[in-house]
């Protein structure tokens, strides 16, 4: 009897636990679907608008079956030298990412691991840069760019963005969590600071580096004001500048803009899909890599 009762109690408990799990899973799935919809609807709307007729884009309720006006894409494609803009953007973003990774790694390591006079103060000075609004510096920066002969070049779009306070901060915060024994052991083996950085610290920081790289890439890809002010020629301008061709002083060519945004956003979406695992790990998983 007792065994039967135990069994039935245990069976009931398992059943209840299974029910709770299913319920919990359903709630999580539902939440995930809602959150996904929140992010996907604007993308869907953009795609819909990109093939809509002009008169349909403001109708409410919106037309879910568009006019399939593919001429919007042709018009958008002809509005700007996209291939040139695209190659410029890839070049600029690539260089900015490489420089940012290098400077973040070096500075983050120095501030976290190396001992030198004024380290804390220097770190504070670097951090304080975050508090200065970039717009205030625009005109002085423009004058400097002119004096350096960098106006309307790739250099002005790369060099000033080759160091990121966010990147330095993130890497520094990661490196301070690493056990000092790691570096002491390396030192005993005769490793120089650079060797310690590249052979010990950097491999452990891979997820953080991916996060810094992606952040830097997206910042560079989406950069608008800086290139617009610092350049004048299509030959050196990035993709975001081209999108301005659809904004007017009295209105916006929404269908053309959405078509252009679709084909200029695709590369960054594809990149994110390939790297999303690292992105998430980099953002939330730094503790795990320390334990490893």
């Amino acid at each position: 009897m007792a065994t039967q009762a135990d069994h039935s109690v245990s069976h009931g408990a398992v059943k209840a636990q299974g029910g709770r799990r299913r319920w919990s899973l359903s709630v999580r799935m539902l939440t995930a679907i809602v959150v996904a919809l929140v992010f996907l609807i604007p993308v869907f709307w953009m795609l819909l608008t990109s093939v809509s007729a002009d008169g349909d884009i403001f109708t409410f309720p919106p037309k879910l079956w568009p006019a399939w006006d593919w001429s919007n894409y042709a018009r958008a494609w002809n509005a700007s030298p996209w291939m040139k803009y695209f190659s410029n953007t890839v070049l600029i973003a690539g260089c900015v990412v490489a420089l940012t990774l290098a400077t973040s790694l070096l500075a983050g390591f120095a501030f976290a691991v190396m001992r030198f006079r004024g380290r804390g103060l220097m770190f504070l000075v670097v951090m304080s840069v975050m508090m200065v609004p970039q717009t205030v510096l625009l005109i002085p920066n423009f004058i400097i760019a002119q004096q350096l002969g960098w106006y309307d070049t790739y250099l002005i779009q790369i060099i000033p963005w080759g160091a990121s306070v966010f990147g330095i901060f993130l890497l520094r915060q990661f490196f301070v969590t690493l056990p000092r024994e790691l570096f002491e052991a390396a030192e005993l083996d005769g490793a120089s600071p650079l060797r310690m950085l590249f052979s010990v610290a950097a491999p452990l920081a891979a997820p953080s580096l991916v996060l810094v790289g992606l952040n830097s890439f997206m910042g560079s890809w989406n950069s608008f004001v800086w290139p617009y002010i610092m350049t004048k020629s299509d030959s050196v301008r990035p993709i975001e500048v081209g999108l301005q061709a659809f904004y007017g002083t009295e209105g916006t060519d929404w269908t053309g803009l959405c078509a252009a945004v679709t084909f200029t956003t695709l590369p960054i979406i594809v990149l994110f899909l390939f790297l999303q695992k690292y992105f998430v790990t980099g953002a939330y998983g730094t503790q795990g890599s320390v334990r490893g």
Binding site: L138, I139, F142, I143, Q146, Q147, V225, Y228, I229, K232, V241, Q244, Y247, T249
Partner: peptide, 22 residues
């Protein structure tokens, strides 16, 4: 023709170039 996307950017760019002497 050096076109700027809007009047805000136009003003900023003229100010910057005038300040830089160009």
């Amino acid at each position: 023709l050096q076109e700027q996307p809007d009047y805000g950017t136009l003003q900023t760019k003229i100010n910057a170039q005038a300040a830089a002497g160009t």
